[in-house]
Design a protein around this nucleic acid. Structure first.
Lengths: 247, 247
DNA sequence: TCCACAATTTGATCTGCATCAAGGACGTAT
DNA sequence: ATACGTCCTTGATGCAGATCAAATTGTGGA
């Protein structure tokens, strides 16, 4: 959240385009030793970033786009266990194996740090480890918040909770005046939403249209959402005052 | 897991009994600076260890017993979001607020460190922070594993997954020869199990008795379980080869 | 502009688990 | 012993969401 202050254009190593992007690590003057081991990389929507059989050679920070973490059972049932949004950390420093699949949900730009040198920096620079601990604690809170969603909420509440993740982010970025619609694009398909929410895609479709019919949200296109009143959506999610995923 | 090597008798500050206990931190010679700020504390089954309105004044390590972390919605629906077993870390270093209720599920002994001095040590001793990062990453993996259970598994698979947590611990402790039953006590009531699994207590009761009827487990008393064949239980949980909660 | 295909919606039906409601089993205090 | 409370089991019924099946909309490429 303390990132996104400035953006820079970066050269992607996969394509010839210079992307607008910024990494909160690279913005931190105390961490400028990271500069020498960093490079930017992009993945297009649907592309695999890492999986159980193909471990990552880097760690890094999402600068643009959305990536997802999912686990799959042998019979094909899958559950998304996390979303990586801009400024989120990618990778498992000090761990060899990835225990879930990391996939680009939209086009994604990542500020990468070579894994081995980064792990060396973790030993030499306590501040890096402290920062990672902070971020990991936040992720743990988010995961536990989501366990309540998965275990106890109704389909309608699940959808509302999901929309809140983006609505709250958008509200911050828009610094939205109270009487203005909050507006954002859905970065996930109905099927991906169902994987995140532990539902079927049909139920997702029905419930999101029910929220629309009830005037909780507007949906000019199937992937674009307007929220006239955030507090109503909050109530639909069954949350008290704050309590959002990324609060 | 690298703890539990030796045990010591410790004086509890709440009662006059000396408890058999050991803390993995206190066993680590590199961390002996912790000695000066540590004390032991016990909680009896059902007692609250911390909650949203009553933050903790310490962090620490569970040495005996089981504690639970839960979140509750205004209307009373609750979801257990974690279990603290011996050697697990309790508390949120660097955070003021507890975001869920911590309750002793059985009688619990905790090796406590005063919060402020512990946070000071975190600044001075990088090793402490590194260790916490490791543990937090493990907790995050466990939480995500559990998200798959909550979002995608059937009631029967949920029960099997739950029993596996204890069966796998017991298997390690018993170093059980292949042809020997794995044996353990259930530290949770049917209702607590239902809170952990996102089910009702009736469904928990029915499914656990179904597993018994099918010979997957034996249940000499309602709180004691024998597992004749761990691999059958694993299959019931829908997991592949390893994949357990605390693998 | 049209076609092919993917994403989404909508309808009809089915089912696993929740809910509601008793009834046992066990422990503890009287 | 007996009574009471807590925990657990078992049965009957209902419903939210899954499943199966089309129809519709949206999209990128020739």
């Amino acid at each position: 959240m303390d990132s996104l202050k400035t953006t820079v254009n970066v050269q992607c190593e996969n394509c010839t385009i210079r992307h607008r992007a910024v990494c909160s690590y690279c913005n931190d003057s105390e961490l400028d030793r990271l500069d020498s081991i960093k490079y930017y990389k992009t993945f297009s929507a649907g592309q695999s970033i890492a999986n159980t059989s193909l471990p990552m050679s880097f760690v890094g920070s999402v600068v643009t786009g959305v990536a997802s973490l999912s686990q799959t059972m042998e019979d094909g049932r899958t559950q998304m266990v996390g979303m990586l949004l801009p400024s989120d950390f990618v990778g498992r420093p000090g761990r060899d194996h990835v225990v879930y699949d990391v996939v680009a949900t939209t086009d994604v730009t990542i500020c990468c740090f070579k894994k081995k040198p980064f792990e060396q920096l973790m030993i030499e620079m306590p501040k890096v480890v402290q920062r990672l601990l902070e971020m990991t604690l936040d992720e743990l809170d988010a995961a536990r918040e989501w366990m309540l969603v998965l275990g106890r909420k109704t389909a309608r509440e699940k959808i509302a909770s999901f929309l809140l993740i983006f609505a709250q982010r958008a509200a911050v970025l828009q610094k939205s005046k109270p009487k203005m619609d909050i507006e954002f694009d859905l970065p996930l398909s109905r099927e991906q939403m169902s994987d995140y929410l532990g539902l079927t895609l049909e139920t997702v479709s029905r419930q999101i249209n029910a929220l629309k019919k009830d005037g909780i949200v507007e949906m000019p296109t199937k992937r674009h959402i307007l929220v006239p009143d955030l507090s109503i959506l909050l109530a639909e999610a069954g949350d008290d005052a704050d309590g959002g995923f990324y609060s």
